[in-house]
Simulated assay, not measured.
Amino acid sequence: MRIERNSAWELDPAVPITPQITRILRERIIQNDLKPGDRISESELARAYDVSRQPIREAFIKLADQGLVEVRPQRGTIITKIGYAAVLDARFLREAIEADIAKILAADPDRHVIAELRDQLARQASLDRRDPGAFIRLDELFHRTLAEAAGKGGAWKQIEGLKSQMDRVRYLALGEFGIETLVRQHRAIVDQIELGDVAGSNKAVRHHLREVLKDLPQIVEANRSSFQLPDGDMPLPVNAPIQGGN
Score class of each variant (00 low, 15 high):
Ala48Arg: 07
Ala48Gln: 08
Tyr49Asp: 08
Asp50Arg: 13
Asp50Thr: 12
Val51Phe: 02
Ser52Gly: 14
Pro55Lys: 02
Ile56Phe: 00
Arg57Glu: 13
Arg57Gly: 06
Glu58Cys: 08
Ala59Met: 05
Phe60Leu: 10
Ile61Ala: 15
Ile61Trp: 10
Leu63Glu: 03
Ala64Asp: 13
Ala64Tyr: 00
Gln66Asn: 10
Gln66Val: 03
Gln66Glu: 15
Gly67Val: 07
Leu68Ala: 07
Val69Asn: 03
Val69Asp: 01
Glu70Pro: 02
Val71Pro: 01
Val71Met: 11
Arg72Ile: 15
Arg72Gln: 14
Arg72Glu: 13
Arg75Lys: 14
Thr77Ile: 12
Ile78Arg: 14
Ile78Cys: 08
Ile78Ala: 08
Ile79Gln: 00
Thr80Tyr: 02
Lys81Ala: 10
Lys81Tyr: 01
Ile82Ala: 06
Gly83His: 03
Tyr84Asp: 10
Tyr84Lys: 08
Tyr84Leu: 12
Tyr84Thr: 15
Ala86Tyr: 06
Val87Lys: 05
Asp89Gln: 13
Asp89Trp: 07
Ala90Phe: 03
Ala90Leu: 07
Arg91Pro: 05
Phe92Val: 08
Arg94Cys: 08
Ala96Asn: 11
Ile97Asn: 03
Glu98Arg: 02
Ala99Pro: 04
Asp100Phe: 01
Asp100Gly: 05
Asp100Trp: 04
Ala102Ser: 04
Ala102Lys: 01
Ala102Gln: 02
Ala102Trp: 00
Ala102Pro: 04
Lys103Tyr: 02
Leu105Asn: 00
Leu105Thr: 00
Ala106Gln: 02
Ala106Val: 06
Ala106Ser: 11
Ala107Asp: 08
Asp108Trp: 00
Asp110Arg: 01
Arg111Ser: 15
Arg111Trp: 03
Arg111Glu: 15
Val113Cys: 10
Val113His: 02
Ile114Thr: 05
Ile114Phe: 01
Ala115Asp: 11
Glu116Tyr: 04
Glu116Gln: 14
Leu117Val: 02
Asp119Ser: 12
Asp119Val: 03
Gln120Phe: 01
Gln120Leu: 15
Leu121Ile: 08
Arg123Asn: 08
Arg123Ile: 07
Gln124Asp: 11
Ala125His: 06
Ala125Cys: 05
Ser126Thr: 09
Leu127Val: 06
Leu127Ser: 03
Asp128Pro: 06
Asp128Lys: 04
Arg130Pro: 00
Arg130Met: 07
Arg130Asn: 13
Pro132Gln: 09
Ala134Gly: 09
Phe135Arg: 08
Phe135Val: 09
Ile136Tyr: 03
Ile136Gly: 09
Leu138Val: 12
Asp139Thr: 07
Asp139Met: 05
Asp139Ile: 06
Glu140Asp: 13
Leu141Glu: 14
Phe142Met: 12
His143Pro: 10
Arg144Cys: 10
Thr145Gln: 09
Leu146Tyr: 04
Leu146Val: 03
Gly151Thr: 02
Gly151Asn: 06
Gly154Pro: 06
Gly154Asn: 10
Ala155Asp: 11
Ala155Arg: 07
Trp156Pro: 04
Lys157Ser: 12
Gln158Phe: 13
Gln158Gly: 15
Ile159Phe: 02
Lys163Leu: 11
Lys163Ile: 15
Ser164Thr: 07
Asp167Gln: 14
Asp167Ile: 05
Val169Gly: 02
Val169Arg: 01
Tyr171Ser: 05
Leu172Trp: 03
Leu172Glu: 09
